[in-house]
């Protein structure tokens, strides 16, 4: 059996990459939203509702929500890892962060999907 290397590089590479990919997804979504708003998507409540109900925007919103929650998980987890040293408190914060983010994702997706 190959011995596991416990120290070294690449342990955070996957998260590092995921944080950047989700950032790009969110940046593209932001650009789409800004263009939509400049073309009047937020000029009235009806226009806003119609814009967000559009099939393409709905999928884009879904991808944005998932990206946001994954991105926030990595970022907030890094903050706890940097500043919170006691293992017990850190574990509690990690679990709370994960649970709230999964909850937020469900809530937000449900709002978009109900339209």
């Amino acid at each position: 059996m190959k011995a596991r290397i416990l120290v070294g590089a690449h342990y955070g590479l996957k998260d590092w990459l995921a944080q950047r990919i989700t950032a790009v997804v969110m940046a593209v979504y932001t650009a789409i939203l800004i263009v939509g708003m400049l073309r009047g998507a937020a000029s009235s409540q009806d226009a806003w509702h119609a814009f967000m109900s559009n099939g393409f925007i709905r999928i884009a919103s879904f991808l944005f929500i998932v990206s946001l929650c994954y991105h926030a998980w990595i970022g907030v987890r890094d903050i706890w890892m940097d500043y919170v040293k006691p293992t017990g408190i850190r574990l509690v914060l990690h679990v709370l962060t994960l649970l709230t983010l999964v909850g937020y994702a469900g809530w937000a997706i449900q709002i978009i999907w109900r339209l």
Binding site: W48, A72, V76, A108, I111
Partner: peptide
């Protein structure tokens, strides 16, 4: 980033109300 994370419930709630 932390501020946005902490205020997410407000933002999602406003999204819900706006729609």
């Amino acid at each position: 980033g932390l501020g946005l994370f902490l205020m997410l419930p407000l933002l999602i709630w406003l999204l819900e109300l706006s729609l």
